[in-house]
Amino acid sequence: MDLRHLRTFVAVAEERSFSRAATRLRVAQSAVSRTVQVLERDLGRPLFERSRHHVELTKTGHATLDSARAAIAAADAVRAAARHTCPAECAPTP
């Protein structure tokens, strides 16, 4: 599981649509579907109930959504702290 998986899961959950999540993330819908499937396989539980025109969170999806959002926020905070405390000139050279 990585942050990309969690960001994709949150986007689908918030948009209630794989296609709208794909547009939001600027990726193909098939990539969104694959990413969610990988996350579901990793967790061993389905996160969404899917039909042709309907996407709903399962109990597992509801239970994990806040934690996924918190993990993303924590990662974003780490990135922001690093950028804030170390100006560009102290960054390591490649």
Rank of each mutant, 00 (worst) to 15 (best):
M1E: 07
L3K: 02
L3M: 14
L3P: 04
R4N: 11
R7P: 11
T8R: 02
F9T: 02
V10G: 04
V10R: 04
V12I: 07
V12Y: 02
V12M: 05
A13T: 12
E14Q: 15
E14H: 14
E14I: 09
E15L: 04
E15T: 14
E15P: 06
S17C: 06
S17T: 08
A21G: 05
A21V: 02
A21I: 01
L25Y: 06
L25P: 08
R26D: 14
V27A: 08
A28Q: 14
A28T: 13
S30G: 09
S30N: 12
V32P: 06
V32R: 09
S33L: 12
R34A: 10
T35H: 02
T35M: 05
T35P: 03
V36S: 07
V36K: 05
V36R: 04
V38D: 12
V38C: 06
V38G: 04
V38W: 08
L39F: 09
D42V: 06
L43M: 15
G44W: 10
G44E: 07
R45N: 07
F48T: 08
F48N: 04
E49D: 13
R52H: 13
H53S: 15
H53R: 15
H53Y: 14
H53G: 14
H54M: 13
V55E: 08
E56K: 15
E56W: 11
E56Y: 11
L57G: 06
L57H: 11
L57E: 07
L57N: 07
T58F: 11
T58M: 09
T58N: 07
K59V: 14
G61I: 12
G61Q: 13
G61Y: 12
A63H: 07
A63I: 01
T64K: 07
T64M: 14
L65G: 09
L65I: 10
L65Q: 10
S67W: 03
S67Q: 09
R69N: 00
A70I: 00
A70P: 01
A74D: 03
A75F: 02
A77N: 02
V78Y: 03
V78R: 10
V78L: 10
V78P: 00
V78M: 05
R79P: 00
A80D: 11
A80W: 02
A81S: 14
A81E: 10
A81V: 03
A81L: 12
A81H: 10
A81Y: 04
R83F: 02
T85F: 05
A88K: 13
E89P: 09
E89Q: 14
C90M: 09
P92I: 01
P92Q: 01
T93Y: 06
